[in-house]
Computed example of a mutant assay.
Amino acid sequence: MRRTRVAIMGAGSIGCHLGGWLASSSDVTLIGRAPIIDAIEQQGVTVSDLKGRSRTVPPERLTLATEASAVVDTDYVLMTTKSSGTVHATRQIAPYLDHDSVVVSFQNGLRAASMIDEALGSAFPSRASRPLALSGMVPFNVVRVGETHWAQTVSGRMKVKDHPRVDPFIRAAHGAGLQIEVEPDMRGVLFGKLLLNLNNAVNALTGEPLAVQLRDRDCRTVLAACQEEALFLAKRLGVSPAGTTPLPPVLVPTLLRAPDPVFAGLSRASLKVAPEARSSMADDLAAGRPTEIDEMQGAVVALAETHGTTAPVCARVVDLVREAEAAGPDRRRWTGAQLRRAVGV
């Protein structure tokens, strides 16, 4: 039986993590920047998870590339670039796709799959012959703990839009030990991920590991206020956010505001966080890269403006992240209490 052929466009932390697991059941192509690809050519890829599983894939078991043309003849392209690079990356791969190709977005934000579909429209004007663009969701953080070692540091199950053409990919993923579920309506899933992602900025502004930051009630109170603004808009939109914990999303802000012992006790079973875990936005600030704040608190602010209302806490967080981006290495590291006062909650 022919192995499923999967290309990862934007092989960074998430992309290398997915590719490393999938390589046991699929023919995997990693497309990324030269420094990462060069390192993998020498050492292969090592991936690990919270269950203690670890796998090293030697370089000869992977196809490694820095050019988008490497997606040619693959069955699935997993888009794992930063959200700001979605349109550019899609235009790069479009000439090498077939009409029956499937592009799955495993990116942050509410709009990635629609952005991919629109960008593909330039190369495939007829929707009937256009490659299929589907939404996916990765709920966990991945940290680069070695030059070519990527570790899952937060618990959670991946999801992807349910469609008959995605079934071979799901089978290959399950065969590789990746937990991926199909979902008929991804709107609620993506909104639920947005609620989770609102902590990225809080974590980045503090500069603390996630496990430390989440023990700070003031930090959690800021996150709760951001989530309440997003939940208000979800209700206006008629979207029911999917839960990422056993607690319904509408009740999570209450849990976040609970005293530290109560939060720790109630979240212990459902939220597993490795000591080294940090948000991807924290990594971006540390590396001097632009952040994805526009697809997180910025998305809440944009939705509020569209619907004739405001999201003042999220707007203030956007401002603080922009200031941190501009300051670079000299950016301020906020305590929870300072951050809470700065956003007015």
Rank of each mutant, 00 (worst) to 15 (best):
M1N: 08
A11W: 09
G12S: 10
G15W: 12
L18N: 02
L18A: 01
G19C: 10
G19N: 02
G20S: 09
L22K: 04
S25M: 09
V28G: 05
T29I: 10
T29R: 05
L30Q: 10
R33H: 11
P35Q: 00
I37N: 02
Q42I: 13
G44M: 10
S48H: 07
D49E: 12
R55K: 14
T56H: 14
V57Y: 06
T63M: 03
T63N: 04
T66C: 05
E67F: 00
Y76A: 12
Y76Q: 05
Y76T: 04
V77L: 15
T80Y: 12
K82W: 13
S83R: 05
S83H: 03
G85L: 03
V87N: 10
V87K: 10
A89G: 02
H99T: 15
S101F: 09
S101L: 01
V102S: 09
N108P: 00
G109Y: 12
R111Y: 06
A113K: 09
S114E: 03
M115N: 09
D117P: 03
L120Q: 05
L120P: 02
A123S: 04
F124A: 04
S126G: 05
A128M: 14
A128C: 02
R130Y: 14
P131K: 12
V143W: 03
R144C: 13
E147Y: 02
W150L: 15
A151W: 14
V154N: 01
S155A: 14
S155V: 05
G156P: 07
K159C: 09
V160R: 12
V160D: 01
K161R: 09
D162Q: 15
H163N: 14
P164L: 08
V166Y: 14
P168H: 02
F169C: 09
H174K: 11
P184V: 02
D185W: 06
V189S: 13
F191D: 01
L196M: 13
L196A: 11
N197F: 07
L210Y: 08
A211R: 12
A211N: 11
Q213N: 13
L214I: 11
R217T: 13
V222H: 03
V222M: 02
C226P: 00
E229A: 04
L231Q: 07
F232I: 00
L233P: 07
S240H: 15
T244D: 11
P246R: 04
P246Q: 06
V250A: 02
V250S: 08
L255Y: 06
A258I: 06
A258T: 07
P259A: 07
G265M: 13
G265V: 07
G265W: 15
K272F: 06
V273I: 15
P275N: 06
E276G: 08
S279I: 10
A286S: 11
A287F: 03
I293A: 01
M296V: 09
Q297A: 10
Q297P: 04
V301G: 00
A304M: 06
G308Y: 02
T309I: 07
V313N: 13
V313F: 09
V321W: 13
R322W: 11
A324S: 14
E325K: 01
G328S: 08
D330L: 00
R332T: 07
R332S: 03
A337N: 05
A342C: 01
V343W: 02
V345S: 08
